[in-house]
Design a binder for these strands. Structure first.
Lengths: 206, 206
DNA sequence: ACTTTTATGTACTACTTAGTCTATAATATT
DNA sequence: AATATTATAGACTAAGTAGTACATAAAAGT
């Protein structure tokens, strides 16, 4: 007797004609497309092109555009979690948090723009129109809030952060400023202004 | 001999059947609808309902949805400018800037949510799809950047702000944090976190 | 070999979108 | 009073949207 432990990436052998595409691969492509274009500005046809599958396979596998987006949000969370936990082991919690800033800045340098956070981007968009997605997005936000707070707490315990205030307060201020930075960059602020905000991000985690 | 000085709010007597609606009133209603729902999520039909006019009047007067939005952006700028300049005369530049925070917080208290800034909201949305609107939004951003910087500068001259750094840097940091606050509220942060961010907004203008 | 099951390709549907066309109504100019 | 001009109401159009139906294809189970 044993328990079957499986995750979202696992494939299960089934009867019938096998899929000619990799489900996780298609989902990943969809997630990135949503991330870059937003939910409403992603048409089904562009999804089919991006995922390289046909309409019938799409609906057979993912049920609807809304379901696919829901799965994209979950994938976003899971892949971020893996990435951040790995970073945490390698460079510690404070540097992991600062890496979020670094990634934004290098993305800006390399491509001249920033995609921002999938949750932030879709939050506003889904607020009125898609109740279920909105609820999920709120939960995902909470997940990241808690995750970042736990990093701050760990950094405080390791004396990487000396600020004695509650971890969620420090995490909140950091994420707030980082989200602001993304908005500001998209609004076209100057390099000097960007540098100053990056400086303030470093100060928050002192 | 005299020069005719007129502004966007002025009506000019013309031949032909007179309009049965007030153009500025209709535009104002449209602007608020765009503000709350975003550009793409505002359908023509909902605009017609909101503006209380029929399709033919709409196209005769505003040419297209895109033109209407462009005018809405201009109206947003102009009405904000009037409002802020009035405030500046009444309570001074620093308190005027802090009023932007107060307005966000009281909007949250009264309605449980915040609409945010029309420019920020539409920036992301229009970035790829609507080149012309994007360009205008970038210009409007620049307008507000300069306006807020001038308030900071005035506040420094009046010794309301003692921080000696360049006015655009201080203004940038303030707006950055304020935009972050709007995102954070929409993401559902706690009251304690909101209070801390408001505290940091006050600190920036010390 | 035959049946069951699942996947795929394509045509189709029902709805929403922004925008146009045309006939008619209301005003100013002559 | 006749005409030019502008506004309005409502039917119409063309394109795009998400999603469905159905016939066919490819595998596993018996």
């Amino acid at each position: 007797m044993y328990y079957l432990v499986y995750n979202i990436f696992m494939k299960i052998q089934t009867r019938g004609r096998p899929k000619t595409f990799d489900e996780t691969e298609a989902l990943t492509a969809a997630m990135h497309y949503f991330w870059e274009h937003g939910y409403d500005n992603t048409s089904l046809d562009s999804l089919l092109q991006t995922m390289k599958i046909k309409k019938s396979s799409f609906y057979a596998t993912f049920k609807s555009k809304e379901h696919l987006f829901s799965k994209s949000l979950a994938l976003y969370r899971e892949s971020m979690l893996i990435r951040l936990n790995t970073l945490n082991k390698e460079i510690g919690p404070k540097q992991t948090l600062l890496m979020l800033t670094n990634m934004t800045i290098s993305e800006l340098r390399e491509s001249g723009k920033v995609k921002g956070c999938l949750l932030v981007n879709s939050g506003q968009e889904c607020y009125k129109k898609y109740t279920q997605l909105s609820e999920q997005i709120a939960l995902e936000f909470k997940f990241f809030q808690d995750l970042f707070s736990s990093f701050v707490k760990e950094a405080q315990e390791k004396k990487e952060i000396l600020n004695p205030r509650d971890a969620p307060i420090i995490a909140g201020r950091y994420i707030n400023t980082l989200n602001g930075l993304i908005v500001s960059i998209q609004a076209g602020i100057s390099d000097a202004q960007i540098e100053d905000i990056v400086e303030s991000l470093n100060e928050i985690l002192q």
